[in-house]
Computed example of a mutant assay.
Amino acid sequence: MSLPHALITALLERPCSGVELARRFDKSIGFFWHATHQQIYRELGRLEQAGWVESLEPESGRGRKRAYRVLPSGREELRRWTAESQDPKPMRNELMLRLRAEAVIGPTGLDQDIARRLDMHRQQLALYQQIEARDFPPNGQSREQQLQHLVLIAGIKMETFWIEWSEQALAVLARKPSV
């Protein structure tokens, strides 16, 4: 995934200032594509230089923020990128390597980190479920809402997977090692 395309998507959903975009990003796209506020601002400048977005003059008054909106060329770039065929990326997960290492060298306290992660996954799942209950009623969703809901469902399924996996890993790690 590409940060520029994530930002264009967010701006097409609703034009806004850089600070508002960064806040919105943290509460939606940031769940599956992390970016710092500095990266977002830097990328907005690049998008503007590329002619994909434009910044609007701030409304009069002190402290008003400059809003951004997507230009037709930015919409076309997003359309091109979205239609591109992409292969899945191989999983690269340090935790899996650490688990393999513990299998070779014996107990290291990895269970404490997995227990900590389990709590984090439970909290994230609860948040996703709250968002689902608030934003996605069971019936009457438009195609756009259904697509957004699919993204959330993927997050719910991933958190559910990690909760189940972590519980299983903790059960195995609790066993005494073979001599």
Rank of each mutant, 00 (worst) to 15 (best):
I29Y: 06
R80Y: 15
D111E: 15
L71K: 03
D87V: 14
A133F: 09
S166W: 04
R80M: 15
H149A: 11
M120W: 11
K176F: 10
G106F: 09
A103K: 13
G140R: 12
P58W: 02
S178W: 00
P107D: 07
V19E: 08
F161H: 08
L170M: 09
G61E: 06
S142P: 07
A174T: 05
E84C: 12
Q49D: 07
E59R: 11
I40W: 01
Q148M: 07
G140I: 11
R116D: 06
E94L: 10
I29W: 02
Q129D: 14
R62H: 08
L118Y: 05
R14I: 02
R23M: 07
H37T: 09
M91F: 14
L99C: 14
F32T: 11
L99W: 11
C16N: 06
G30H: 02
E84A: 14
L12Y: 03
L47S: 00
F31T: 02
L147K: 07
R14L: 10
L95S: 12
T9L: 11
S17M: 05
Y41D: 05
G30K: 02
G18V: 04
F25T: 03
P177E: 08
Q124C: 05
R42K: 08
L110V: 08
I29L: 10
F25H: 12
E159K: 07
F161K: 04
T160E: 15
R122E: 14
D135H: 14
W165T: 06
T82V: 13
S2I: 05
T9A: 15
H121M: 13
L47V: 00
R14G: 05
E13T: 07
P4H: 03
Q39I: 02
V19S: 12
T82W: 09
D111P: 07
R175V: 09
Q112P: 10
C16Q: 13
F161W: 08
V70Y: 00
L110R: 10
E167Y: 12
V53E: 00
H149F: 14
L7P: 01
P177W: 03
F136L: 11
M91D: 15
C16Y: 00
P58N: 03
E48T: 06
L97C: 06
I29A: 06
R24Y: 06
P137F: 14
R42N: 04
E76N: 08
S60G: 10
R117M: 11
W52M: 03
D119T: 10
H37N: 09
L95Y: 09
I29D: 03
R64I: 05
Q38L: 08
A103D: 15
R80D: 09
E20V: 12
P4L: 03
S73W: 00
H5E: 10
E43M: 04
I105G: 05
F31N: 02
L78P: 04
D119N: 09
H34T: 02
R46Y: 01
L110S: 07
A115T: 05
E159N: 12
R175I: 05
I114K: 09
A67Q: 04
I8Y: 01
E84R: 15
E84I: 06
E13W: 02
V70E: 00
E102G: 06
A35W: 01
V70F: 00
Q168P: 10
R98G: 06
G155L: 07
L78T: 03
L56Y: 00
M1F: 08
A10I: 04
G45L: 08
I131M: 13
L7H: 03
S60W: 12
L150V: 01
W33Q: 12
D26S: 13
E94A: 12
E48R: 07
E102R: 12
L3T: 01
F32S: 08
